[in-house]
Nucleic acid binder design. Structure first.
Lengths: 236, 236
DNA sequence: ACCTGAACACCGTTCAAGT
DNA sequence: ACCTGAACACCGTTCAAGT
């Protein structure tokens, strides 16, 4: 047996995760996977939190960002969808997101990319910052809710059988989502969010958080842009 | 000591949760709080999952829905903000959302309310269903990301100190969020989502998921409505 | 009917001791 | 240097036995 290294620990962790799920990954099983005593792992990784953080980094490194030369809206959609694809593949990630800011360099990269695209599209810094949070929140929530099986309760097929007797609208509307894949549901919400954001460009509201606000580059000729950007189709 | 009942168990669970957090709540401590042996609890609650589900129900019962006679957009914002306020008070709820569909009657009530308001505002059933999921995902994600401390990474003040050297836009834009409360951040994203949704009413896209689609009641005279609804301020 | 004691099969983490 | 054995302080859950 080779000596323990962080890369070997991370690889083994992902193997256990794939095989047994989050609840199946313990420091003891991880050590077993590597043929060592539990205590041996602690010489390379300070605790389980750090382990999970390393695993998160390893996975999120696989998020691919498109060419930023694309139309900003397309670029954002593609980046977000890439993040969604990579992260939803690993169900345990939703669980780990709760355990504090284990969002490392990779998610920085994603943030920088999305912020730049939003600003290029004509949003002010403050608008871009706000929307960026909204996109991130939506992405995280989608992963968590999809994982949980019932999100708003109605939309995942499983939830439709429950006690919907007193909720006629829920009952009527629930089957409408059954035909959509999770990717499509994600794209649909993202599209609405971007529609709302780009509407702000053409019809700016009163300056809130005016401190540090920059002139929106496309602000002047953006009037009328909303229709174009707003109804553009989400690729994929 | 009185005999064990489900209400007494739920009350004790909330007490322990408040005092020691999610990680501090165990079946053993819960039993201790009630002056009983751990095994006694299992006569009233089948396992820990059911316990958490009961606790979730107890809290989510406190979500207040406004008068549905209000303007639909205002009604949705108020309902979502009420849900946000109630749920964010209990940090452990984000953790529990991952553990499967423990969304009971109360969240049904919320879903029914939001769906009805969206349809009253002129969305088709399919549009309302999609948007309802998006709102729910956003709410869940906001709770989870706010809990985690760093959401898109930049926006919570704590995250701004990190390694932002190679990310100039993140660095420049991060301080802009520092002045906003979590409630304001939540409202900002929700507003964008609703802007996008109501833009759909005035400029409907090609009918997707045409099965079961109803005529949008406000569809005809809604042209021009978007400006009105879209720039309306979020109350609170 | 309601509860307890004791056990089973686990955890994360530490630390003196071994090679 | 690198690892192990053994322990500490916990878990959720079960079940025969007690009152």
């Amino acid at each position: 047996m080779q000596p323990l290294t962080r890369p070997r620990i991370v690889a083994a962790g992902l193997r256990v995760l794939e095989r047994e799920g989050v609840t199946g990954l313990s420091m003891r099983k991880l050590a077993g996977e590597l043929g060592k005593a539990p205590a041996a792992v602690y010489k390379h990784v300070s605790d389980k939190r750090e382990l999970m953080s390393l695993l998160f980094d390893e996975v999120s490194r696989r998020i691919e960002l498109p060419d930023p030369g694309d139309d900003p809206r397309t670029a954002i959609v593609e980046a977000a969808q890439s993040a969604h694809r990579v992260l939803e593949e690993h169900g345990w990630i939703a669980t780990e997101m709760l355990d504090g800011p284990l969002l490392g360099a990779t998610s920085m990269r994603l943030s920088e990319f999305i912020l730049d695209a939003l600003i290029r599209a004509g949003l002010t810094d403050a608008q871009a910052a706000r929307l960026h949070i909204a996109i991130w929140d939506y992405l995280v929530g989608h992963l968590v809710a999809a994982r949980a099986g019932a999100p708003g309760l109605l939309p995942r097929p499983t939830a439709s059988a429950d006690g919907t007797e007193d909720y006629p609208t829920v009952r009527r509307v629930a089957p409408l989502m059954a035909g959509m894949t999770d990717q499509e549901r994600f794209a649909a919400g993202l599209r609405v969010l971007l529609d709302g954001a780009f509407a702000e460009v053409s019809a700016p509201r009163e300056a809130e958080a005016a401190v540090g606000e920059r002139e929106a580059p496309g602000g002047r000729e953006a009037r009328g842009t909303q229709g174009e950007l707003g109804t553009q189709d989400v690729p994929g």
